[in-house]
Nucleic acid binder design. Structure first.
Length: 119
DNA sequence: CTCTTGACTGGTT
DNA sequence: GAACCAGCCAAGA
């Protein structure tokens, strides 16, 4: 195990950790996108990794509100990965987010931008 | 080790 | 606006 490999492993671990922490900062009733998270973490072209991180979120100790993360169009593309196909929409509805046909309503209004919210 | 598969995005047609 | 394509990168077969 070289020092370089160690650094790479740490980097990967930090990326997932950062994703989880950022997602947990999303307020109720607000949503953001995978790409935005990736961009904020300096991995603009690696939005798929954010999706993969969400896939691993269930292994995380703390609760990750992955339902507040949708794609750039505001579509619930990840709803299949919840306990039931309707869980994601139900969670959002419970927070006051209206979802019609997998599309978040007023998406541009409730969109949560870390660059603006966190500076 | 190679090949496929995505909880994605941006640009092009 | 819809459909298609290329770049991205971590798992799993």
């Amino acid at each position: 195990m070289s020092i370089q490999n160690t650094l790479i492993i740490d980097k990967k671990a930090n990326f997932y950790k950062d994703v989880f922490e950022l997602v947990m900062l999303i307020p109720e009733g607000r949503v953001t996108s995978y790409g935005t998270i990736a961009k904020y973490l300096g991995a603009t072209r690696s939005s798929r990794l954010v999706g993969w991180a969400m896939n691993l979120s269930h292994t995380h100790d703390q609760y990750i509100p992955a339902h507040r993360v949708v794609n750039r169009q505001g579509l619930l593309t990840g709803k299949m990965h919840f306990p039931t196909p309707t869980t994601m929409e139900e969670l959002l509805n419970a927070e006051g987010v209206i979802v019609i046909n997998d599309q978040v309503q007023n998406f541009d209004k409730i969109f949560w931008d870390p660059f603006i919210e966190l500076g």
